[in-house]
Design a protein around this nucleic acid. Structure first.
Length: 184
DNA sequence: TGCACGATGAAC
DNA sequence: TTCATCGTGCAC
C-alpha cells in the first residue's frame, strides 16, 4: 500500500529528516501516470541562521513556505532555468528544509535524475507544486517498500561557497556507492 | 522601478 | 570557463 509519510516524519530535526529521507520514494502522479524515484542524495538547510539557506533572508513571499508547517514542498526556479525541490521540516516558523538532489529511477521516470534540476525535470516538478502539501494523493513521499541497509556519506553542500563557515558544514548526505549520486 | 544574482546544467 | 534566463530581494 503506497501512502504518504505522516506529518510527524517531517516534524523533526532537519538533519534527522534529511538522513531519514534517503531510501524513501518520491511519488508524483500526473495524467494517471505515477512517476516514482528513490531518494539517494539530499542536503539540509537549517534555518535563518544558516547563511546558505534562502530562509536566511527572513520571511518573504518566497520563503513563506519554508517558514510554514512541515511536510510541504518548497519548489523554486534557479538561474531562470531549472527547478529545485525541498521538503519543509521542523515546526512552523523554523525556516528549515531538505533539498532533494538525486533519485534512483523506480517507475515511469525518463531522463537523468542526478542533480536537483534534472531530478525535477524527470519528475515533472515545477513552480505549480510550490507550497503543495506532501500529504496529498498525487505528490508525496512514501516509505520504502522494504527494509534496506546502506551507509550514509556526509559531505559539504554543493554550490554554497558564499555561505562562510556554513559552507564547510557537512550537511549533504547520500547513499554510499549509489550510482545515481550527482557528484562525488 | 531597476538591477545584480543565484542550493544548475550544458556547451565550449 | 562561459552562458542561458527569470524570479527574488533590496537599493533607489
Amino acid at each position: 500500500m503506497v501512502q504518504p509519510l505522516p506529518r510527524t516524519f517531517y516534524d523533526r530535526d532537519t538533519i534527522v529528516v534529511a538522513r531519514a529521507l534517503l531510501g524513501q520514494y518520491l511519488v508524483h502522479v500526473t495524467h494517471s501516470t505515477a512517476r516514482i524515484g528513490r531518494i539517494v542524495e539530499v542536503e539540509a538547510y537549517r534555518g535563518p541562521q544558516d547563511r546558505a539557506s534562502h530562509s536566511s533572508r527572513g520571511l518573504t513571499r518566497r520563503t513563506k513556505v519554508m517558514f510554514g508547517p512541515p511536510g510541504f514542498a518548497y519548489v523554486y526556479l534557479i538561474y531562470g532555468v531549472h527547478h529545485c525541490m525541498n521538503v519543509v521540516t521542523e515546526g512552523a516558523g523554523r525556516g528549515a528544509a531538505v533539498l532533494l538532489r538525486a533519485l534512483e529511477p523506480v517507475q515511469n521516470v525518463g531522463g537523468r535524475t542526478f542533480g536537483p534540476g534534472l531530478l525535477c525535470r524527470a519528475m515533472d516538478i515545477d513552480l505549480r507544486l510550490n507550497a503543495q502539501d506532501l500529504l496529498s494523493d498525487h505528490f508525496f513521499i512514501a516509505a520504502a517498500p522494504r527494509i534496506e541497509r546502506f551507509v550514509i556519506v556526509k559531505r559539504p553542500r554543493v554550490g554554497v561557497d558564499y555561505a562562510g563557515a556554513w559552507a564547510k558544514r557537512q550537511l549533504r548526505f547520500y547513499i554510499r556507492g549509489n550510482p545515481f549520486i550527482s557528484r562525488p
